[in-house]
Structures are given as structure tokens and as C-alpha cells.
Simulated assay, not measured.
Amino acid sequence: MTTEQVERVRRFNRTVAERIGVLHDRYLGGARPYGQARLLWQIGDEGPHDIRGVRARLGLDSGYVSRLLRALERDGLVAVEPHPRDRRVRTVRLTEAGRRERALLNDRSDALATALLAPLDARQRDRLTSAMAEVERLLTASVVSVDVLDPGHPDAAYCLRSYAAELQELFEGGFDPAHSLLPDPGELRAPRGLFLVARLHGEPVGCAGLKLPAGAPAEIKRLWVHPRARGLGLARRLLSELEERAARHGCDVVRLDTNQALEAATRLYRGSGYAEVPAFNDEPYAHHWFEKRLTPGTR
């Protein structure tokens, strides 16, 4: 990234902060600052919610969230209670007064959005809202984390179950993991391989595995992205991360196979420099086999 790009981001942040009113002690002319108002909105009308999940969604530390909740609870807007099945877990829900204040916040937020758009003509409004949608998508992509996990980790297991369930729906005749050449979990653990899991706001939204067999090309397995995280460039990011890690392990070739029903995946592989090659395994669910030669500095 360049110095100019960093400065553009900073200017954008300052402009947004000024225009949406987060600098004021009383957000949207209400009785509380932005942090309390945002938390009140995040809790929502439905509940109760696990406080840890709310905190992860907002990316806030536990001490700050506790202070915000105490202020809201003192004003009678939320109720903080132990989870009925696990008293170690705290939950939060809106009270009736909290729901009324949240409804008022929604009305005032609509009014603020209308005021931002009102001075613009129809073409400018379309440009602004389209740009906002793109910024939202890219900012969301920037908060996705990717970590190496054991394939037996609950988040990894969730991704693999979700992947298999989706293939069951997509493949003609369904998908039976018992008939697939699924890698043994040990093949996706160091030093024989690795398994990546992507998380958005603390929730698993994607995965990809890499086999690193001795004396053979690296092989990518089980690349999957949750439907709600598609459009963020995550599949390409996972693919690039595996390629980089394969190169770091001294591999100069990486392979993968895919099913004809996975058209988006096939387009991704072709667009990422993979060339179709003859079958290199007996995977019964594969119709296409791809290979890519890695170069120093592959990313």
C-alpha cells in the first residue's frame, strides 16, 4: 500500500465521522453517545443474545462492552442475565423501554440518511449508494481473519460439515463423503499439510486444506466459502494463501480437482492461472483436474 492510500482512508474516516454525527455526545439528538446507541441497535428486538457474540460482532473488548451494558442497564434499556443452560454465559436482551428507544434510533437514522441524500440529484444518489455498497463489501472483507487450525477444531468441523451439505444439494446424485477421496485428518496437519479457517466477526465462514506429500506436488482440498461471505474475494484469498504456503514449503507445483457443478470454483481456478491436466487421482466426484506451477514470491 502507498502513503497516499493511507491518507485517503484517513480523510474518508474523518468525513464519515463528521457527517454521521459520531463526534457528538448525544448521538442523533438522543440521550446517549454513539457507543451506547450502536450497542442498543446491535442487540436488536430479538433475544436474548450471548454477550460474547455481540462483542465479537462489534469487535470490542470485554471491558468496554461491560461499561456500555452497565450504562444501558442502569437506564432500564437492557436486561443482563445468565444463560438458562449455562450460568457461566451471560446474555442480554432489550427491555420494553429499550425496544422503544431502539425504534426511535431507527427513525432518526432514517432521517439522517435522508438528509445526506437530499442535497444530491438522482444520479449522485445512485453513485453515492453504489460506492457505499462497495466500501461496505471491502471493509467487511478486511475484517475476515484466516488462521491455521487443526481439522478437528469445532470451527473446522463446522466448515467441513457445511461444505459436504452444500455438495449434497449441488451434485447430481448427491454427495457421500464415504465415497470421496477425503484426506485423512493427519494429512492436513503439520508437517504433512495444513488447514485454514476463515472467520468473520468470530464466526467460521470458509476453509481450505493443503496436502504436502513428500516428493509430490502439493494438493488443495476442500476449498469452501459460506454463502453469506461470498462476494468478498475470500475464495481467491484462501487459494492465494495456500499457494504461498506451498511455495514456502519448497513446492513448485500445486494441484486440485473439482466437480463440473462447481462452475464458480472452476472459473476461479482458471482465472488464477491453473491449467487443466489429465486426471491425477481417482476422485469419483471430480470432472476437472488442474495444476499450477508456482514461482518464487507466489502470492
Rank of each mutant, 00 (worst) to 15 (best):
H201A: 15
A157E: 15
L212M: 14
L234T: 06
E166I: 01
L242Y: 02
S162R: 14
A246F: 09
T258W: 01
A235H: 05
G233R: 07
N259W: 04
S240T: 11
R199I: 01
D176T: 12
L262H: 03
V146A: 02
P213T: 11
V254N: 02
L200G: 01
G193N: 12
E187Y: 08
V254S: 03
L212Y: 07
L234R: 04
D176L: 11
G233T: 10
V148F: 02
L239P: 08
R270Y: 00
G215M: 08
A286E: 06
A218D: 13
Y269L: 04
S180Q: 12
D184H: 15
A156H: 06
A190N: 03
L239C: 13
V144Y: 09
K221M: 03
P185W: 08
D282Q: 14
A178K: 13
D184Y: 06
A165W: 00
E187K: 13
C159D: 00
R267Q: 12
P154I: 05
G174I: 09
L160H: 14
L268Y: 05
D147M: 05
G231N: 11
I220F: 07
A261R: 11
F290S: 02
L268G: 08
K211F: 07
L200F: 03
R270P: 00
A178H: 13
F290L: 13
A229Y: 02
G271H: 06
Q260M: 06
G271Q: 10
T258K: 01
L194E: 15
A218E: 13
Y285L: 09
A164V: 09
K211E: 15
E276N: 01
A208V: 12
H287L: 01
L268N: 04
C159H: 01
H288V: 00
R161K: 10
W289P: 01
L200M: 06
A178G: 12
E244P: 00
I220C: 10
A235S: 11
R237A: 13
D257S: 13
L170V: 13
V197Q: 05
I220R: 07
L160A: 14
N259H: 15
R248M: 05
H201T: 04
G273D: 02
C207V: 09
E283D: 14
